[in-house]
């Protein structure tokens, strides 16, 4: 009695399942390939324009500088002249005759030191100015004047004070990048919502806990804005400062290349300086994104 019934089920089900995949698959397939196509399209839409622009600029540059007697080398000549530097960034012939990796790393070390100091001091001063009305009244006018002084104007003074190139360069980075960090931190602290202060008061957090648990996380988006501007400024400052203090460093490499009329090397160095500056900026921005995750008001 059961057998025929089961058979019936199978028989009736079979044609359905035979038809179903066709029905189900046909609408499914095109979207998937369309999806890939769309992804490829979107990537292309992002990647192709800058490539086209760069190619066009290179072409114009090549055409303009190709003529005899041109002051600047065309891209093809830049590549030919600097091939060794590009493909062997790690050589070290002593003194300042080193590969570009060593120059960049020397510059980055100075930036790392100067910038770290300015981040610590800048956040501390920013918290002070943001939290205390009297500190703000006393210090803010000073900051507003000092921050307009160009980085290099500090160099002679710091050379006089430190009597050495290395600490002077670090000081120039410090003094250049500290202002946006101070000012943005102070704004962030001043903008902590009263609600958070009330919560801290009810819970009776002590000043240290208030600082670490409320202030720093609440002001983090502002602090990272300051840090990001600061890293950009310190990279600007180090190149200029190194040109003057000499020694190993990408800034002095550029100056040295100019003195030896190696224009191609200058162009290559500028390219590296740009890339490193870009990476530093992204690094701080990315760090900020991770740290301030969730800080945005919900």
């Amino acid at each position: 009695m059961n057998m025929p019934a089961k058979k019936m089920d199978i028989e009736t089900a079979a044609p359905v399942s035979a038809v179903a995949p066709v029905v189900a698959m046909t609408p499914k397939r095109p979207p998937r390939s369309e999806g890939y196509a769309r992804m490829a399209k979107e990537t292309a839409a992002r990647v192709i324009p800058p490539i086209v622009v760069i190619m066009l600029l290179m072409l114009v540059w090549e055409l303009v500088c190709r003529r005899a007697g041109s002051a600047l080398p065309p891209p093809s000549k830049v590549f030919k002249d600097t091939k060794e530097l590009i493909f062997d960034p790690f050589f070290d012939h002593g003194g300042i005759d080193k590969g570009l990796f060593w120059h960049l790393s020397a510059s980055l070390q100075r930036v790392a030191l100067g910038y770290s100091l300015s981040a610590i001091a800048g956040i501390a001063l920013g918290v002070l100015v943001g939290q205390s009305v009297w500190a703000m009244r006393g210090l803010d006018p000073l900051f507003q004047v000092l921050r307009t002084i160009p980085p290099l104007a500090w160099l002679p003074l710091s050379l006089a004070a430190f009597r050495d190139g290395q600490p002077s360069a670090i000081f120039v980075i410090f003094i250049t990048s500290i202002w946006p960090i101070i000012i943005n931190t102070a704004v962030g602290i001043r903008n902590i919502p009263q609600d958070y202060r009330n919560v801290a008061a009810v819970v009776q957090l002590n000043p240290l806990e208030f600082f670490s648990k409320i202030m720093i996380p609440a002001a983090a988006p502002y602090i990272f804005t300051g840090l990001r501007i600061g890293i950009g400024l310190s990279w600007l400052a180090i190149i200029a400062a190194e040109m003057l203090i000499g020694g190993v460093g990408i800034g002095f490499f550029i100056w040295d290349a100019w003195n030896s009329s190696h224009i191609s090397e200058i162009i290559l160095a500028l390219f590296y300086v740009g890339i490193v500056g870009f990476v530093l900026d992204r690094l701080i921005a990315g760090l900020g994104k991770i740290v301030t995750r969730g800080t945005a008001q919900g």
Partner: peptide, 9 residues
């Protein structure tokens, strides 16, 4: 508090 005042981080 009226506006919950939870710390968003």
């Amino acid at each position: 508090f009226q506006n919950h005042s939870l710390l968003p981080w």
